[in-house]
Design a protein around this nucleic acid. Structure first.
Lengths: 217, 217
DNA sequence: AGTTACTTACTGACCGTTCAGTTAGTAACT
DNA sequence: AGTTACTAACTGAACGGTCAGTAAGTAACT
């Protein structure tokens, strides 16, 4: 008779489950989107069965919201902390934030989330509203603050801040989103480093006051 | 007895159907996305029933491809024609193309299509490949040509053209896509005119050679 | 009367959600 | 320490609704 010790088919791990399920959910949602994600797949990846998910989350939508709160929102908070403690020029802070965003979102599974939201906002208005308020407006407030600092310091031209903010974010968002979407179709690849360098260069060059530092009017 | 002439409940209109179905499909696909679009809804909007769609299109995917070919591709062709016949500066052509894109895509139902593709490319790789080749690369070639003209003419700095192209398009794509997605969540609205003005201003300011016209090296 | 464009009714697959039942873990009582 | 009674974490199957695609039948037009 082999197998003296009977290894149980499963274990009770109440504390570990939510985190594991969220982590599995991130992978699957980021890969497939909201509607196309099967909770069965999330469950399998988390090492449980579908029913278990419902012990910890009310439904698919609640699971997704929890996921956003545990993963994306902290990234924004980190950016806010960076901005708060930053002492140097606005140009410099801008560059740091851009690079940090790509490091934490653009090049991780998190990149799938913005894509997912853009994809499905129309079909899940509740989710859209939630995400827009907790993530989009908060991110814009962060970037808008940086631009205002630059304008006050005379580094940046007196542009419309709300719009310039959107224009600073758009290339980031679009890169994240399009790269994720069309990865399989881009034989030429996507040189992230060069893309970021060029965005930072063009944008700062575009928004800079003509004589780089002086000139207040 | 009223109603002597019996108006038929429906008519045979073989020639008109495909176009009407495509037009209905555009509205529904743009609104809901690919997977979430029900052919029954497309049919109702086109004034037929689901079965009729299958008389003219092999399946959902074929319908979508036809739709792209009949609507988006012509927009690109128009842009190509504009670029070909343009005589003035690259700056000017850039501005015209940007505004034209928004007029023909950004502010029509077509805006839903880029969003749809970004949304569902991962889940429908065939569609993604098709779209990327027929639309994305072609659009990039168009914009890339403009930038090269500007560099040759000494209007623009010697940037990496492939990347600068992506950076020129990204704000357009993202605006189209995000506006469609989050329209319901933006109480402040979205000032398209100002957004385009600022993009053109910042981008051309960013890419311009320092002394605006002369300076070839 | 014949042809065929179109409708109607149907099928089969899929998936979120539910819940009755099973089993791991625990504590009370020997 | 060992047995037993109990709790609750987890499973797995089934339900109900949805929808792409199909095919048999019907009515418009020639």
């Amino acid at each position: 008779m082999p197998q003296a010790v009977t290894k149980p088919r499963w274990r009770r791990r109440k504390n570990a489950r939510p985190e594991e399920i969220i982590s599995a959910a991130l992978e699957v949602f980021a890969d497939r989107g909201f509607a196309a994600t099967k909770l069965e797949d999330v469950a399998r990846r988390a090492g449980v069965t579908k029913g278990t998910i419902y012990l910890y989350f009310e439904n698919k939508e609640a699971l997704f919201k929890a996921l956003v709160r545990e993963t994306i929102v902290p990234v924004i908070e980190q950016g806010e902390a960076l901005a708060k403690s930053h002492k140097g020029s606005a140009r410099d802070l801008f560059e740091q934030l851009v690079r940090e965003y790509f490091r934490l979102v653009g090049e991780t599974s998190l990149a799938g989330i913005p894509r997912l939201m853009i994809a499905e906002a129309r079909n899940f208005p509740q989710l859209a509203r939630f995400y827009y308020e907790e993530v989009v407006t908060r991110g814009h407030r962060l970037m808008g603050g940086v631009l205002e600092r630059g304008i006050k310091a005379g580094e940046f031209r007196r542009v419309n801040v709300a719009i310039a903010t959107k224009l600073a974010m758009a290339p980031l968002m679009h890169a994240v989103v399009a790269r994720k979407a069309f990865a399989a179709c881009m034989p030429e690849g996507f040189d992230v480093a060069a893309y970021l360098d060029t965005h930072i260069d063009l944008y700062l060059h575009g928004i800079a006051t003509d004589h780089t530092d002086s000139r207040a009017d």
